[in-house]
Design a protein around this nucleic acid. Structure first.
Lengths: 116, 116
DNA sequence: ACCTTGTTTAGAAGACTGTCTAATCAGTAT
DNA sequence: ATACTGATTAGACAGTCTTCTAAACAAGGT
C-alpha cells in the first residue's frame, strides 16, 4: 500500500530553479492541483485521529468509488498520503513531511519578492 | 497587461475544504504545476531588480517564443505575475501576495497532521 | 514609409487527465 | 464454500493542456 515517494527537497528560494528540480516539484504540485484531491487531502488531514476511511471519503463526493480510488492513488504516488488496510476498511493518513515541503516551496520566493 | 486575479483567501487549515474553495485553490495550483512555469516564476522572482525581460526568459528555454508567452499568460491570469511594456521590451515581476498564498495553503495542514 | 526585432494571438496536432463502466481482489459472515 | 460489502485495477471516452507554425501587433531605426 505504501507507494513510491519523491526524494529530496529542491528549493525555490531565490536562485533560478534547475530543470530537473522543476520537473520534480511540478509533479508534486500536479498531484494537489485538482479540486477533488485538495478536498481529499483536507478531509484526511482534518479527520478525527488523523486518518480517514475510504468509505467516508467516497460518500462525500458525487463521484464513483473507482474515481475516488484513482485520486487517492495519485496522492499516494506523490507521497502525500499513505494507506493501510485494517480488516474490511482501508484508512488513509497524511504524510506531513511531503505536505510541509509543498508549503516551503513558495514562502521564500514570496518573501524575497516582497522586500525587493 | 494586468490580468484578472483570483479573489479571497480560502484556508486549508484543518476543516474540510469546501467545494468552491477547492476549485479556486486548484486553479491557482494548476498555474504553477508545470516545470516551465515554475522555472519562469523562479527566474522572474530571483532576477536582479525583481523583474525580468521576456527576451531573457525565452532564451533560457528550448521552446519557441509563443510557448513562453503562453505560459506567462497563464501565470498572469492566475495573478502570480504582472507585466509591463517599456519601450521595445516587456518586463514581468512577481506578485508576492499571490505567491505567499500558495505557501500558506499547506503549512497549517502539515503542522496539524504532524502533531496529531 | 519601410524593415527589423520583440511579443502576443489564432488555430491545429498530439499527449495527458478525469471520469465512467465492467471486472477483479480482499475480507467477513452466513 | 458461497455470498456480500469495500476497494482497486483495466480499459474507454471526452475534455483539457502543451507545444508548434503562421499571422498579427508594437516599437524603434534607417
Amino acid at each position: 500500500m505504501t507507494a513510491v515517494t519523491i526524494e529530496c527537497c529542491p528549493p525555490l528560494t531565490r536562485g533560478p530553479l534547475s530543470e530537473q528540480d522543476a520537473v520534480v516539484l511540478a509533479s508534486l504540485l500536479k498531484a494537489v492541483a485538482d479540486p477533488v484531491r485538495l478536498r481529499l487531502l483536507s478531509m484526511i488531514g482534518s479527520h478525527e485521529g488523523g486518518e480517514a476511511c475510504v468509505c467516508d471519503l467516497t460518500d462525500a463526493f458525487d463521484l464513483t468509488a473507482p474515481t475516488i480510488s484513482h485520486h487517492l492513488k495519485v496522492l499516494r504516488t506523490a507521497g502525500l498520503i499513505d494507506g493501510e488496510r485494517r480488516g474490511t476498511w482501508v484508512y488513509y493518513r497524511v504524510i506531513p513531511e511531503t505536505v510541509a515541503r509543498l508549503g516551503a516551496i513558495f514562502t521564500p520566493l514570496a518573501d524575497s519578492a516582497g522586500k525587493a
